[in-house]
């Protein structure tokens, strides 16, 4: 039952299948499609020579990674805020807050992601962000502030689109974060609430000083995993014309017609980021568990 590794018939079958599949793919690519691989063409989109001074500057793919990370970072910050509020709303004693949070969470969970993002993008972009006047930011601020803002939010003339897409993504992730928060708070034993009660703490103080400090430890690992999910989901904002990694992949694939190479490169880049993060999180978790014992 405790499976000892050994070389058996199953290995033969599995290796046989994999080899047969690879051989068939190789045959189709070279024999049937007669595809000529050209990795150099899409790879030059990592860095390019600057025409003015001849130095290397980041090209579309690197720019895409930066925008992906930017969208993910702001999405995480906003999503956490929304998720925390909605998660605490779900367990509130006030029925109104429970209804609002429940309505929000169920709405997100039952509307497909692409229509949800489009609806939020249009509504948020047109109705909430337009009155804020994000359009004229680049003219209103000094060059120095503009530089800082550009580092944080990307090109300022695209700021409204960026903000709307990020907010739409955050609203999508917020529902999942809300469920994590809720599960974490509910996992704290009732006795902790009662103890807080008997000390005469108000419910808000019980939450703040007794429950949340314990819940935070429990929800950190699932929240870390959600951040990986967020990076993956951020690829969806490419459908809203935000120029992140997937969008750049599409640009490059269509402009060079190097579909095979480009998509393999883009997938590999996501893999490196997400797999790397999941390894780092797993290591941190193990270390924290060890130190706690």
């Amino acid at each position: 039952m405790t499976a000892r590794m050994r070389f058996g018939w199953l290995d033969v079958v599995v290796i046989g299948c994999v080899v047969a599949l690879l051989a068939y793919v190789a045959y189709r690519v070279h024999g049937h499609l007669v595809y000529h691989w050209n990795w150099a063409e899409p790879l030059q989109f990592f860095f390019r020579r600057d025409e003015a001074d001849g130095g290397w500057v980041p090209n579309l793919l690197i720019e895409g990674v930066i925008i992906t990370l930017r969208v993910s970072l702001w999405g995480a910050v906003l999503g956490m805020a929304i998720g925390l509020l909605a998660g605490l709303g779900r367990i509130s004693q006030v029925a109104l807050f429970r209804m609002i949070s429940r309505g929000y969470v169920e709405l997100v969970r039952n509307v497909a992601p692409v229509p949800f993002l489009f609806i939020m993008f249009f509504f948020v972009g047109n109705q909430i962000l337009k009155p804020l006047g994000l359009e004229g930011v680049q003219d209103a601020v000094s060059p120095a502030t503009g530089g800082v803002l550009e580092l944080m939010f990307g090109e300022l003339n695209l700021l409204r689109n960026f903000a709307a897409a990020t907010l739409a993504l955050a609203l999508y992730e917020g529902a999942y974060i809300a469920e994590i928060v809720r599960a974490g708070v509910l996992s704290i034993e009732r006795g902790q609430w009662e103890a807080g009660d008997s000390l005469g703490l108000s419910r808000l103080h019980q939450l703040r000083h007794v429950i949340l400090p314990q819940a935070v430890q429990r929800i950190t690992p699932p929240l870390a995993n959600q951040s990986i999910q967020l990076i993956k989901d951020s690829s969806l904002v490419s459908l809203l014309s935000i120029q992140e990694m997937t969008f750049m992949g599409q640009e490059i694939a269509h402009s060079t017609s190097r579909f095979f190479e480009t998509w393999i490169i883009v997938a590999a880049m996501y893999f490196v980021v997400c797999f790397g993060l999941s390894r780092i999180y797993a290591r941190l978790e193990r270390r924290i568990n060890k130190s706690r014992r």
Binding site: S235, G249, W263, Y270
Partner: peptide, 12 residues
């Protein structure tokens, strides 16, 4: 599968 976005998988 877990480390790449579903959109990229669809494109692939």
């Amino acid at each position: 599968i877990r480390s790449t976005p579903i959109l990229v998988q669809v494109y692939i």
